[in-house]
Every structure is written in structure tokens, then in C-alpha cells.
């Protein structure tokens, strides 16, 4: 027990405070042992259920391998060339780009608008408004998809069709989800419905984190509200905006639930995750599924790195 304490205290305070010389290495060993013991269960779960499968996916992407045939054989880059030249996968990449643009734009604009609006509310009003705004985030993706499918119903019993036609914006009922490009936009917006809340929370925190004095000083300097927004709010909000962007990218690249519920594995709308599911569990081709998932993850990683660099470069203000 006492040894624990001796080991813990210096460590907790960080390296700045040197630990007493006598017994230092023994104490360090004990700290190591304790730390590793505490982390071990978590790391074991991650190692077996995340790291091992990740490596297995990468290895499998170079193998010919099917769900119904347990014999795997090295096949070089064949899975990659086949997947990259496959119409469905190309369309999935294109669609995912489309979803990404729609989702991030929607989350940025709506999130920022809503966050600014929230900032103007006080006390109980703000708490109530926040609860309402966060609700969509809590709703399971498939249920959200189902709820939106009621609204987007291609007949007149769909809420959107009925409302738009009654105000004269459309002449006949539209099958929104069947349209190639409009369908992507509409589905992207339904995903944004679930994603905007997180954007609002992050952006609101970013807004609140901007010191009041900066605004006051600029008022003294004669800046108006609009100029303040451009010259103070936006630049200082940059880390929060980058997080929202990063989140949008991760969301778009992992998108599956809502699209699957709204349009199934329709090749016009399919996402990368959907194409992977299609290869593995509809076509039984695990090799293709591996290659598709590795390509998609590589793209995610590249985008994440770019964003992270942007965030960290601009972090201090």
C-alpha cells in the first residue's frame, strides 16, 4: 500500500518533480505494473476486437476469400483492381462525396445558425431549446430513417409532397428518394437532422469560449456586428468548425443505417459501407469487402489527418 503511494505521487505530478532517489526504479516498476494492470482489460478488448480484425482485414484484402468457401489464397492486388474498377464501388465513392458535401454544409450552416440563436437565449429558455435541439441526435439511425421515410413517401400521403403541393411548389407528387442527385441531397439532409445537434453543441461551446473582451474592444474600435462576425467570431471558431467538418467526414464515410433503411442497397445511393456490406453479405465475396473497407478507411484517414493538421495549427488564440 505505501509503496503504491510512493509510486503514484511523483507520477501523478508529472516529470517536473523529481522522485526521491532511494527505491526509484522499484517504484517505477510498481507504477508500470499497476498502470498496465488497470489498462489491460481495455487494451485486451481493443486488441482482440479492433486491432486484430483491422490487421485481418488488410491481410484479407490481398486474398481470394468467400463467405461460403473457407479456403483463402493469396491473390495480390486483384481484389483492389476489381473493386476500384467496379461500377458500384465507384458510384459509392461518388455518392459518399455527395453525402459528405451535403452533410457538412448542412451541419455547418444549420449548426452555426442554431448556435448563434441559442447564444441569444438565456437560462431556462436555453435549456429547453437545447433539449429540443439535441433530441434528434438521440434517435437511433434506423428509426430516424423510418421517420423520414414517412415524410418522403412518394405518394400524396407523404408529408413533404402534401405540403409542397398544397402551397404550389410542386405540380405532381415526387418520388424524392428515387432521384439520382436530389435523392442524395434529401438523404444527406435526413442524416444532417441527426448530426446537426452535435454540431450545435460543439459550435456553441466554441462561441462561449471566445472572450467577451475581444468583442468589447472591437466595438470600441467601431466595428459593427457583421464585421465582428467575420473578423472575430469565424476565425476564433475555427477549431470548433474543424471538429464539425471532421465529424461530418467521418459520418459520411461510415454512413449506412439511414441510407439502408431509406433506399436499401440501391446502387444510385449506396455508400462505401453499403458497398462493403453488399460485397460481403449479398455477393459473399469477403475479399472484395476487405479491399473496399481498406480503401475507404485509407481515405478517411487521409481526410482526418488533413483536418487534424488544420485544427492544431490554429489552436492558440
Amino acid at each position: 500500500m505505501r509503496a503504491d503511494r510512493a509510486a503514484l505521487l511523483p507520477a501523478a505530478r508529472g516529470p517536473a518533480r523529481p522522485s526521491p532517489r532511494p527505491g526509484r526504479s522499484a517504484a517505477r516498476r510498481r507504477a508500470n505494473r499497476l498502470g498496465l494492470a488497470l489498462v489491460a482489460p481495455a487494451f485486451a478488448v481493443i486488441a482482440v476486437l479492433v486491432l486484430y480484425p483491422t490487421i485481418s482485414s488488410v491481410v484479407g484484402s490481398f486474398q481470394r476469400y468467400e463467405l461460403t468457401d473457407p479456403n483463402r489464397a493469396f491473390s495480390g492486388l486483384r481484389n483492389y483492381t476489381a473493386v476500384l474498377s467496379d461500377d458500384t464501388f465507384q458510384q459509392a465513392l461518388l455518392n459518399t462525396g455527395g453525402y459528405f458535401v451535403v452533410i457538412t454544409l448542412a451541419v455547418l450552416l444549420m449548426g452555426l445558425g442554431t448556435a448563434l440563436w441559442l447564444q441569444s437565449l438565456k437560462g431556462a429558455w436555453r435549456a429547453i431549446a437545447l433539449t429540443v435541439i439535441v433530441l434528434p441526435w438521440s434517435i437511433p439511425g434506423t428509426v430516424a430513417g423510418v421517420l423520414w421515410s414517412f415524410i418522403l413517401n412518394p405518394t400524396g400521403s407523404g408529408l413533404l409532397n402534401s405540403v409542397l403541393k398544397s402551397v404550389g411548389l410542386i405540380g405532381s407528387y415526387q418520388a424524392w428518394l428515387n432521384k439520382p442527385i436530389a435523392g442524395i441531397v434529401v438523404i444527406g439532409l435526413t442524416v444532417a437532422w441527426s448530426a446537426v445537434p452535435l454540431g450545435v453543441v460543439v459550435l456553441l461551446a466554441g462561441l462561449e469560449g471566445i472572450p467577451r473582451e475581444i468583442y468589447e474592444q472591437s466595438l470600441v474600435d467601431g466595428a459593427d456586428r457583421l464585421r465582428q462576425f467575420g473578423s472575430i467570431t469565424l476565425p476564433l471558431l475555427r477549431p470548433a468548425l474543424a471538429i464539425v467538418l471532421l465529424n461530418g467526414a467521418v459520418l459520411a464515410i461510415g454512413l449506412f443505417d439511414q441510407v439502408y433503411v431509406l433506399v436499401g442497397l440501391d446502387p444510385d445511393k449506396i455508400t462505401i459501407a453499403g458497398s462493403m456490406y453488399l460485397y460481403a453479405f449479398r455477393d459473399f465475396n469477403f475479399g472484395f469487402g476487405f479491399a473496399a473497407s481498406v480503401v475507404a478507411t485509407a481515405i478517411t484517414a487521409a481526410i482526418s489527418l488533413v483536418y487534424l493538421r488544420l485544427v492544431y495549427r490554429e489552436e492558440e488564440y
Binding site: 481493443i46 461510415g254 469477403f286 469487402g289
Partner: peptide, 16 residues
């Protein structure tokens, strides 16, 4: 390592 796994999409580990 644990942080990086935050960014591992579900579909990468799905089949294994």
C-alpha cells in the same frame, strides 16, 4: 492506439 481506434470505422472490422 486507443485514440486512433476512435477513427476505425465499423465496417473495417465487420468481416473479421
Amino acid at each position: 492506439v486507443i485514440t486512433i481506434t476512435l477513427a476505425v470505422p465499423v465496417y473495417l472490422v465487420l468481416i473479421p
